[in-house]
Structure formats: structure tokens, C-alpha cells
């Protein structure tokens, strides 16, 4: 871990301005991912801005009938919130499928969205990784890639996004509210928030330098049956091989988003139109341009079968 300076921000705008002032500065909230990465010198911020005291820890109704979730709301609190459990059950279930109780107590809503990949080559500073060291290459390609992306990857990076929560957020069409260093706010639809790796896998979101997440909002509830199925090698405390978030209406229409398959939560709206035709048809559209590795080709079958099981479950 490199030595760093530290400040407590007094307001979101001040946090954003401070972040712009010191290139490479990072916000720290729960620190469940950032501190680990700093210990390994994968992240080497010269300056940390502690945003825990900004009062962004409330869950409030919005005028449009939705919910505004403060950026600092802990995963445990969000998963347990009565409104979330009632109207956005898929989000609660996704949260509870992630990490451990201890980590969820610390991890925050915005921090969860900003998790870095768990690619083992990203985690080993002896190995080439375009995400960690742009231009150094990708060791995962041709290497151990069972956990890696099967769709939307590039020749520069085949990493996945590790979050469960983000998959549910994508399904629910959440919006990310931010404040920029100049004090202006903006709203980023979750679909535009996470990026595919392309040639710049080190740039993972559409946030601009210094831009600070203040809240995530959910539109008004959409009803339906909420399902989050996470498939993994052990029963708990593991990243998804594949996860399926689904909200299925009684008429068989609905939404589908997948985790564990791409550099971001994977949702293809056109694929959802195939829902009445079943999992195979939906999968075909979801994975139309899939390029799996020999080690992770099984994820295509697994995703389709997990989706089929979810649709069966939705029927009751």
C-alpha cells in the first residue's frame, strides 16, 4: 500500500471538487474492495476522500412513486428495507446473494456499483492486465478463464463485473445521480453507467473525473414476480458463475438481466420480447454475439437453463 493523504469531505460537491484537485484521488465509503486493492497496490490513490459522513444514507420515496437510495446506504440496510422487500424484491434478493453479512454491513450502494473485477490476473501485479496497466495485455485470454465473460468482451479484456446488486439495478432501470466537481448534478441511466471493455477496459463507468455518486433512484414499482437466481460453485460467499435477475408478469412478459457473463450487468431489451417463446429464444438473443473461451463455454448452457428454471419458478 502506498502512503496517501486523507480528508473527510463536508459535502458531496466538496468531495467531487477535492477529487478533481488530486489526480488519482479516490472516494472511500465502506472500503470493502478499495482497501484490499490498495494493499496489493492494484489501486494506488495518493489521496482518499472519506464520504461516510455526508448523510447520504437515507432511503426516501421520490415524487414519481419510486425510491431514492442514498449512495451511502449500506447493502444490509437496503436489502432489509421494507419497501425494497415489498416492491423491488429482486434487488433485496440480489443483495443478499452477494458477499457475506459482515461485508454487506460495510458495503454501500454506490461502492457496490463501482466494484472492480475479480479476474485473478487483475489481482496479480506480476501478470499483464490492460485493466490494471493499460497496454500491458490480457493474461486471462488463453489463461484460466472459467469465471470470465462470454459476451461483450474484447481482445483487450474478458473480465466480468462481480456485482449482484448492479444486475438487479439494471433490471429495474435504476438511475445514478451524481454531482460533478463544478457543482452541477446529472442523472445517468444505469444502462449507460457501466461500459464494455473495448480497447479501454480500465475505464469502467461513464463517470467523469471527480464525479461523485450521491444516490441511485428506482422508478415506480413494476409489479410481477421477482426472481434472483445466483449459480455458483459453493452455496454462499462466492461470485456468480451466472446469475439471472427476472421480473415476470402474469401475461408472461417481463425483464431479464444477467450477471457473471459480461463486463457489465447484461440486459438486452430485444431479448425480452422473446420471453413468451421461452428460455432458448431469449438466450439466443442475449448471447447472439457471444465469444466464450473453451473454459467458460458452459456458461451459455448454464444461463439458458437457469433462465428456464427461473421462468418455471415464475409460473409457480
Amino acid at each position: 500500500m502506498r502512503a496517501f493523504t486523507y480528508q473527510r469531505a463536508a459535502s458531496p460537491a466538496e468531495a467531487a471538487a477535492a477529487a478533481l484537485k488530486t489526480p488519482g484521488a479516490k472516494f472511500i465509503a465502506g472500503g470493502t474492495n478499495l482497501l484490499d486493492l490498495m494493499k496489493l497496490e492494484i489501486e494506488t490513490p495518493p489521496h482518499l476522500i472519506d464520504v461516510n459522513g455526508l448523510g447520504l444514507d437515507k432511503i426516501e420515496p421520490t415524487k414519481g412513486g419510486g425510491l431514492r437510495i442514498g449512495a451511502l446506504v449500506r447493502n444490509t440496510d437496503l436489502a432489509a428495507d421494507a419497501k425494497v422487500r415489498k416492491d423491488y424484491a429482486v434487488l433485496s434478493r440480489a443483495l443478499l446473494a452477494g458477499a457475506s453479512g459482515q461485508l454487506r454491513n460495510k458495503a454501500t450502494t454506490a461502492g457496490n456499483l463501482l466494484q472492480r473485477t475479480r479476474c485473478p490476473y487483475f489481482y496479480d501485479t506480476n501478470q499483464a492486465c490492460n485493466k490494471r496497466l493499460p497496454g500491458s495485455g490480457c493474461s486471462a485470454i488463453g489463461g484460466i478463464s472459467r469465471q470470465h465473460a462470454v459476451v461483450g468482451a474484447s481482445t483487450a479484456c474478458i473480465a466480468t463485473h462481480p456485482s449482484d446488486m448492479a444486475v438487479a439495478m439494471r433490471l429495474l432501470d435504476a438511475k445514478v445521480e451524481t454531482v460533478r466537481p463544478n457543482g452541477q448534478t446529472r442523472v445517468i441511466p444505469i444502462a449507460d453507467f457501466h461500459r464494455l471493455p473495448g480497447t479501454t477496459p480500465h475505464i469502467e463507468t461513464s463517470l467523469q473525473p471527480g464525479e461523485f455518486i450521491t444516490a441511485v433512484t428506482l422508478p415506480k414499482p413494476i409489479g410481477g414476480t421477482h426472481i434472483y437466481t445466483k449459480v455458483r460453485d459453493r452455496a454462499s460467499y462466492a461470485f456468480a458463475l451466472v446469475s439471472v435477475a427476472a421480473v415476470i408478469q402474469t401475461d408472461g412478459t417481463g425483464r431479464i438481466a444477467l450477471g457473471g457473463v459480461a463486463h457489465k450487468p447484461w440486459r438486452v431489451e430485444a431479448a425480452e420480447k422473446e420471453l413468451p417463446r421461452g428460455a432458448k429464444a431469449v438466450s439466443a438473443k442475449l448471447f447472439a454475439n457471444a465469444v466464450p473461451t473453451p473454459e467458460n463455454r458452459f456458461k451459455l448452457t448454464l444461463a439458458e437453463r437457469t433462465l428456464a428454471a427461473a421462468l418455471l419458478e415464475a409460473k409457480g
Binding site: 489481482y123 493474461s139 459453493r234 452455496a235 460467499y237 462466492a238
Partner: peptide
């Protein structure tokens, strides 16, 4: 990793051992 000669999953996130739920 048969190219570089090392055990890639060198932490307890990558090397999974049973948890209570298992």
C-alpha cells in the same frame, strides 16, 4: 496457468473451500 507456471487463484476468493452453507 500452464503458460506461466503458477497457481492463478491464489486467494480465498479464488480458491474456494466449503463455507457453512455447504
Amino acid at each position: 496457468d500452464k503458460r506461466h507456471g503458477f497457481f492463478v487463484n491464489h486467494d480465498l476468493a479464488g480458491y474456494e473451500v466449503p463455507v457453512h452453507a455447504d
